[in-house]
Lab assay of single mutants.
Amino acid sequence: VTTYKLVINGKTLKGETTTKAVDAETAEKAFKQYANDNGVDGVWTYDDATKTFTVTEMV
């Protein structure tokens, strides 16, 4: 189990959260659900070296 981080660069919501998951795919599903629940829709990137997902909403 690995800890993954999500950085949110939203128009109205900004911040970070973490989740523990067995792999990046599982973490991504959890983060996308979290973003969807919070009304964040944007471009996703993932950095495997730092285990960090970033979602950026276009203005």
Rank of each mutant, 00 (worst) to 15 (best):
58 M>L: 11
38 N>L: 12
46 Y>D: 00
8 I>N: 01
18 T>W: 11
4 Y>P: 01
20 K>L: 15
26 T>I: 07
58 M>S: 11
41 D>Y: 14
56 T>A: 05
50 T>R: 05
55 V>K: 00
41 D>Q: 12
31 F>M: 03
35 A>I: 07
13 L>W: 13
44 W>G: 00
14 K>C: 10
22 V>R: 07
59 V>P: 10
45 T>E: 11
19 T>S: 06
35 A>W: 03
30 A>M: 13
18 T>S: 12
41 D>H: 13
39 G>F: 07
19 T>D: 03
32 K>Q: 09
29 K>Q: 08
34 Y>K: 03
6 L>S: 00
58 M>Y: 12
11 K>W: 09
59 V>R: 09
9 N>C: 11
10 G>V: 14
16 E>A: 09
31 F>V: 02
30 A>L: 15
18 T>A: 07
15 G>T: 15
46 Y>F: 05
49 A>R: 08
57 E>A: 09
25 E>V: 11
30 A>V: 14
24 A>S: 13
37 D>M: 11
18 T>Q: 09
29 K>N: 06
3 T>N: 08
27 A>Y: 00
27 A>F: 00
13 L>H: 11
16 E>D: 06
47 D>S: 05
9 N>W: 12
41 D>P: 03
12 T>Y: 14
17 T>R: 12
19 T>N: 04
47 D>C: 09
27 A>K: 00
34 Y>I: 07
9 N>E: 09
5 K>I: 13
52 T>I: 07
37 D>S: 11
7 V>S: 04
35 A>R: 01
18 T>D: 05
6 L>Q: 00
4 Y>I: 01
58 M>V: 13
53 F>K: 00
47 D>Y: 04
33 Q>N: 08
42 G>I: 02
40 V>Q: 03
33 Q>R: 12
21 A>Q: 05
37 D>I: 10
33 Q>K: 13
54 T>V: 06
44 W>H: 00
44 W>D: 00
41 D>G: 09
6 L>H: 01
36 N>S: 12
9 N>I: 15
56 T>I: 09
55 V>A: 02
55 V>P: 00
16 E>R: 07
35 A>D: 01
16 E>G: 09
34 Y>L: 06
31 F>R: 00
24 A>C: 10
48 D>E: 14
25 E>H: 13
21 A>C: 07
8 I>C: 04
27 A>C: 02
31 F>I: 02
21 A>I: 02
28 E>Q: 15
18 T>H: 09
51 K>V: 04
39 G>K: 08
32 K>W: 06
34 Y>Q: 03
26 T>R: 07
41 D>R: 12
55 V>N: 01
10 G>I: 14
55 V>S: 02
40 V>H: 04
27 A>G: 02
17 T>L: 12
21 A>H: 03
48 D>P: 11
13 L>E: 07
48 D>K: 08
28 E>Y: 15
6 L>V: 03
30 A>W: 15
4 Y>K: 00
54 T>E: 05
9 N>Y: 15
43 V>S: 09
4 Y>W: 06
45 T>N: 09
53 F>H: 02
50 T>P: 02
54 T>W: 08
28 E>W: 13
